[in-house]
Design a binder for these strands. Structure first.
Lengths: 346, 346
DNA sequence: ATGAAAGCGCTAACAT
DNA sequence: ATGTTAGCGCTTTCAT
């Protein structure tokens, strides 16, 4: 194997099966640069050379080293997705949608959890700005200005958040909230409360404004309770506060909260929807089989993930696109199940 | 800024704010290697030099380039987690646990979805074997031999699967199934069916064997129906098949199936647990609020994620550990809710 | 169409 | 304790 008695090459010494373009070059008798071309831009190389190279690559079980490629080309073929809490079922569909689209484009997904902290979010963003081609920010807690700075040096797409100059895909839940208002008003509800989520959430504010506006159109005002955390057990406090307002219906920041409220209400013997109607937001996993099944705003969340990825990839390929600032708005619709009904008679 | 009229350095030309160790070296008047040391092994450098360097790094807003570091050191500080379906709620806790532990160790998480396909799994593994330090395989569909080959060239920890020579953390659901058997038998059930999941799942077989063995101890035999897919809507077919067996109780491969069965049973007017008892497996999000709330085997899945990461990191740091083959078994327990009850009288 | 050569930013011997 | 010198594996001008 080594007739000259020369020391084995570094590469071979490190690991068997770790062929590099140099190995391929040696085997096929061409220059490494030709191998590189044959593999990444096959059309720039003579057909027979190319085929010889490709055959050798297969033979040697060659796998390109992404680090090396990234180092010299600047592209990493990796996109980061930042979520505020990886265990929130809301993100499941998002992750799936993003992952699918990314995989189809030959890119990898780097998933990061910001734990709902602006500091951690900022820190992570700083650390990885060199190791990814772009970032998708779901539920960013960062101030607009910071976001703008980041977007200036790295392609960014935000989800459910609009920032001047930053591409975004937002789910039109305000419109959905309007639908919910019409639904509730038509059922005779006059007193509706909004169950507030995290104050730092952009969507939270948007939903509240929509509810207030919608109610105002009917000459009615809306109550607001909270803020509450967005986990299920925060629903207990929310339910108690809700009963205190005397509202006959509520719209919640998200389904997690709504499901928690449903449970607490059941514990306290309050009939839903007989005494009070509950409308959630997002239509997460579980919204259709909780008890009673939840009336909620169905968000096309998986689609949002796919669309966000598409936008990002477009940016990467086309600098002109990057200079512009696209916004995509995805529609929601109200899905009526059994947690909403006729307002109780006084 | 550039009094000599010299062309700007390549680095500066590329991007502002993209300082390298060379920039720091220039500013502080030391060699680049010293900068490297000061930053990665502070103790190997004189205190005042180190402090000057660190100050300069902060000043220049320096962020190490992970690609370059990986290329020369061989470490990537990234761990991959492969799941068979990122939208399966079973993985949520796993992802969270892994992410937490990884973050604490300064490592990144690369999440990949194998879409339940052995081919895709193998392909992904091949593609990224250079870009990660190690891999956690949740629900691998790969044959033992392939797994062994992969484990030989890359640190691997499997979850819920035992392969000779490969580190693993498995959740002791067979023991949990035994508990379920005792529970059901003590409620008077004599005819129990197992609702089979994916044949390629190692855990699926283990659970079935446990059920059969457990029943045999009471001189009873067990039925087996399926295999069924693991999504909720596959529960419909499973429920129909179940009714056909005449069993008074079933244990399902996972909660998703169980929840689907519950729904179908309700549609067909079959009372749970009056006419039939249903026991799930995993205790996923939703198992406690479906209707009726599901009796199930509670798996410490988030802990499994953390433990898997710890094992992997140990391997990376300590080659001796890597040569050994550790197995960690995590206990489960039966959580009795309202989907199981007394067997119906004949 | 192909080759030669110069890095990308960092780490790791080896010297001093 | 610090500097020098080679690369890691790949892409990319620039020649030929």
């Amino acid at each position: 194997m080594n007739p000259e008695g020369a020391p084995p090459s570094r590469a071979a010494a490190r690991q068997e099966g770790r062929a590099t373009i140099n190995d391929i070059a040696a085997v096929t008798g061409v220059a490494a640069s030709t191998v590189s071309r044959a593999l990444s831009r096959p059309d720039r190389v003579n057909r027979v050379t190319r085929e010889r190279i490709q055959a050798a690559a297969r033979e040697l079980n060659y796998v390109p080293n992404t680090q090396a490629r990234a180092l010299s080309s600047g592209r990493t073929d990796t996109v980061a997705l930042l979520v505020s809490d990886a265990t929130n079922p809301f993100y499941f569909g998002l992750i799936r949608g993003a992952q699918q689209q990314l995989h189809a484009a030959g890119q990898a997904l780097l998933l990061m959890d910001t734990e709902d902290s602006a500091e951690l979010e900022n820190h992570l963003l700083g650390k990885m700005r060199r190791s990814v081609d772009g970032v998708i920010l779901a539920a960013s807690r960062l101030p607009e200005q910071t976001l703008a700075v980041i977007a200036a040096e790295l392609p960014v797409v935000t989800i459910n958040r609009n920032v001047p100059g930053v591409h975004s895909v937002v789910i039109d839940s305000p419109d959905g909230v309007m639908q919910a208002v019409e639904h509730l008003v038509s059922l005779g509800h006059r007193h509706v409360a909004y169950v507030t989520g995290p104050p730092s959430s952009w969507a939270n504010e948007a939903r509240w404004r929509a509810l207030r506006t919608g109610m105002a159109r009917h000459g009615l005002s809306a109550d607001r309770i909270g803020p509450f955390g967005v986990s299920r057990h925060c629903g207990s406090a929310a339910a108690d506060a809700l009963l205190n307002t005397g509202a006959t219906a509520c719209v919640t920041f998200n389904d997690l909260l709504a499901i928690g409220i449903l449970r607490r209400l059941a514990e306290r013997g309050v009939d839903v929807p007989g005494e009070i109607s509950v409308v959630g937001c997002d239509d997460i996993f579980g919204a259709d089989f909780c008890s009673p099944p939840l009336t909620t705003l169905t968000a096309p969340i998986e689609q949002a993930g796919r669309v966000a990825v598409s936008m990002l990839l477009e940016n990467l390929e086309n600098p002109a696109v990057r200079a512009s600032c696209r916004r995509i708005i995805l529609p929601t619709h109200l899905t009526v199940r059994q947690s909403s009904g006729q307002a109780p008679r006084l």
